[in-house]
Computed example of a mutant assay.
Amino acid sequence: MQLRILAPIALLSLTIASTAHAENLQHLSRAMSSGECQKCDLSGSGLVLANLKGVDLTGSDLTDANLSRANLFGAKLAKTNLSRASLLGADLRGADLSGANLSAADLNGADLTGANLTGTNLNGADLRKATLTNANFQNADFTNAYFRGAIDIPAAAVRSEEFYAWGVEEARRGNHRGAIEQFNQSLGVDGKFAYSYIGRAISRKQLGDLQGAIDDSKLAETFFQEQKNEEGVKVAKDLTKALQTPPDSGGSDFLGSVINMAGSLLLKIFLH
């Protein structure tokens, strides 16, 4: 398989990397010409926009490598060390990253559709806006990984509290549709997470879904009762009452004060 660099900037990066890492020049040449370089030293290599489709770099050292927007479709990267590597916007569809070290790697906007990340170390990795559809994350380490805005986040990767926090942030910006999406994901992880029902109830009311808001506030009350959270029970009850009170009967003012109380409750979780 013949590999090629797709832009002058990639060639410039490669030249700089080769100068700084003379010891891996032979390995770079081998990877570029044959598409296979197992257990090679490619640390610090500059391969921006490189076409590495199907390349076999199994067990290689790619620490601090720059693979931004590289084509790594179907690449064999099992047990590679990609610690602190830049894979910004890289095409990793169907790639085998099983057992790889991606700690602190930049995967912002990368496409990992159908990729194999079994047992992969993603500690501290940046996966914002990455596409994770049908990726295999079995036994992966997600410690401190950041998934905000990623598509098809695996359930084991993000706690309900994190989705909830993102929902609160969106609601405070006035993006109630976005907030509801985050609260939905929070409840997908933990269907009894009462705070997300309160948050979703408020966002639904802001979008005109009064019945949905009432249903959510009642569910919040149920789960707060199960958890013996008296403050939560009171806020949920008051919210349900306010939602059911007609505006011309003072309901608007009552609802406003209850929403303020609910807002204080929603923020309290971050203090624990």
Rank of each mutant, 00 (worst) to 15 (best):
G212R: 06
L265A: 11
L12T: 15
A150M: 02
E162H: 03
N184G: 02
G149A: 03
N134W: 03
I9D: 14
N144A: 15
S83D: 07
M261I: 01
L62I: 03
Q206L: 06
K129D: 11
A17D: 11
D111A: 12
L67N: 07
S249P: 00
D111I: 12
A157G: 01
I269Q: 13
L266M: 12
T19W: 07
A100E: 04
T80P: 00
G74Q: 05
L49H: 09
S45N: 04
S34K: 11
A201K: 02
R172T: 06
V235P: 07
L243R: 11
L112Y: 04
A242Q: 06
A70G: 06
R159A: 15
I269V: 14
A75K: 09
F223Y: 15
P8F: 00
A150I: 04
Q185E: 09
F142N: 06
L52I: 10
A100P: 02
S160E: 14
L117D: 07
L210W: 03
A75F: 02
L97Q: 08
E36L: 10
K129Q: 13
D238C: 07
N24F: 04
K39G: 01
G263C: 07
K39Q: 14
E181A: 12
L92I: 11
N66I: 13
E169T: 07
N229P: 15
D141N: 15
K39N: 14
S13D: 13
D64T: 14
F254I: 13
S18I: 02
A140N: 04
L87W: 03
T19Q: 15
S34L: 14
F147K: 05
L97M: 09
T143K: 12
G149Y: 02
T63D: 11
E226K: 09
S83Q: 14
I198N: 03
Q138R: 09
G119P: 09
L112H: 08
K268W: 04
R172K: 14
K205D: 13
R30T: 15
A220S: 10
L122D: 13
T113N: 09
A7C: 10
I9V: 14
S33D: 12
L82I: 03
Q227G: 06
L239E: 04
